[in-house]
Nucleic acid binder design. Structure first.
Lengths: 261, 261
DNA sequence: ATCAACAATTGATCTGAATCACTGTTTGTG
DNA sequence: CACAAACAGTGATTCAGATCAATTGTTGAT
């Protein structure tokens, strides 16, 4: 049953994903499908259900291990399922006909992708690290929601949180200059990261490429690079590694970022 | 009972609103409170309930008539209620400490404001025309949602739609230039307006000030003014009145806007 | 280990939109 | 009705960030 192609699945898209699997050994993926041992068990929508209710989710879901750089859903395609990320990171983006692309967010363990009111996906989601995602056919999920109102409430809460994040991003893109955007982004990462609470000089992990980061912040990679140098020269940040930055003065950064997000 | 200040209401904010009422005669407002005769009966969250179920909403809601330029909710304030717009238009905006403000959206009949996961409002909502809003205390609404799962489902759908709109706005602010932003905005207005479906040269109504429009599009009023002139000179639009514009060539406008919202 | 392909950095230059300054036009008010 | 205050339009100038161009890492495939 696991890894079988369900009748209403977009076989083409899934085939492409399966072909790309290189890193993740299949047995590991198989284990993921048992919700009770899932890394994201306590996060996202699954957190809404008691242990005993999980069997229903297990029954309708399928888990997949994906290599980096593979699409999970594509903007405009028929939305017959939603997905939960259980490990790794994805970028969510929209494109204009001429190729310009705007990253609307990053998704990691516990986050949901593909939930939309219409019948087609509003954005493309692509892995930017090796990742595991869990697929829930729409009709199966509807049944579950009808049976467990808690679940619907949880989805409403998650969607509201996402909406708030989107509005913060609108504020960032509409009002803030390059330095403020980067400051806001670093602080948001620090806030979301676990184990950095209370650390006066938190180190943030940047798994995405600079190119993706700039596409998220509405800047060009060159601008990002220059602004990072300025922040470094000003003694506000320190590059610990290529993908790791220590915030030397979060308060100053916060002031600069407009004390928001 | 109508217009009384409920115990958990922010009396200060409401007093301010009531003071400002000038246009709306009270009897008219009183009528609004009977949901069955509400202008927004078939829109927004109320559409989820059958006629017989409306009494529950009537019981917990209070309707108010507001003059233009008055706040309904304020960013950061304690969120103990949500509101539905039943007539008129509001602007929703967030501010930075230094005063820069970004309008995240406009709300009109059927739209909901103040729904958020946290315990404080994420944005300020202010009337930009005379308007009527309907107040639902949070706990009353929770009770209603528990009783009517349809209602919760409707809220989820509405929030998803709003999220999609927010992501479109992120694309607009992150990628598009001034002309494209205006084109997208005009087309979105034309699409939302009733009675313009199929009209090859729809006329759109712009109730908001140029200042608000520019704050929504992440531009300065001067830039907006110049771009409008260019669109006019290019024969794409025609100014029918100060607040009314006819789209002479929606297709060309659509191409220019990147064929997206 | 080598090399091709791609990502990141840095510099030089350009440009779209912001800013500044002023004028005309509404709007609301006593 | 007059008049202040706010809004809208236009021109001149500036500037933040984009674009163009070149170099230097990094990565991953063979």
């Amino acid at each position: 049953m696991l890894f079988s192609v369900a009748p209403n699945e977009d076989a083409g898209a899934w085939r492409a994903m399966t072909t790309g699997v290189a890193a993740g050994p299949l047995p590991a993926a198989r284990k993921e499908t048992f919700c009770s041992s899932c890394q994201a068990r306590a996060k996202g929508m699954c957190a809404a259900l008691a242990e005993a209710e999980l069997s229903g989710l297990s029954a309708i879901s399928r888990s997949r291990v994906l290599a980096s750089g593979l699409p999970v859903i594509r903007e405009g395609e028929h939305a017959d399922a939603v997905y939960t990320v259980t490990s790794g990171m994805l970028k969510l983006f929209k494109m204009l006909p001429d190729g310009r692309q705007q990253i609307t967010g990053f998704a990691s363990a516990g986050d949901m992708i593909g939930l939309s009111y219409g019948d087609s996906f509003a954005y493309t989601a692509e892995t930017i690290t090796a990742a595991t995602v869990c697929r829930f056919p729409r009709n199966g999920l509807s049944t579950m929601m009808a049976r467990h109102p808690h679940l619907q409430g949880r989805l409403l809460a998650m969607t509201s949180i996402e909406l708030t994040a989107a509005q913060d991003q609108i504020l960032l893109l509409g009002c803030k200059n390059a330095a403020e955007r980067i400051g806001s982004f670093l602080l948001a990462l620090a806030r979301r990261a676990e184990g950095t609470a209370g650390d006066p000089q938190p180190t943030v992990f940047l798994p995405m490429q600079k190119t993706d980061m700039s596409a998220y912040l509405g800047l060009r990679p060159e601008t990002l690079s220059r602004q990072f140098r300025k922040l470094e020269d000003a003694g506000l940040i320190e590059r610990v590694a290529a993908d790791r930055i220590r915030l030397l003065d979060p308060d100053a950064l916060s002031d600069m970022a407009g004390r928001v997000a």
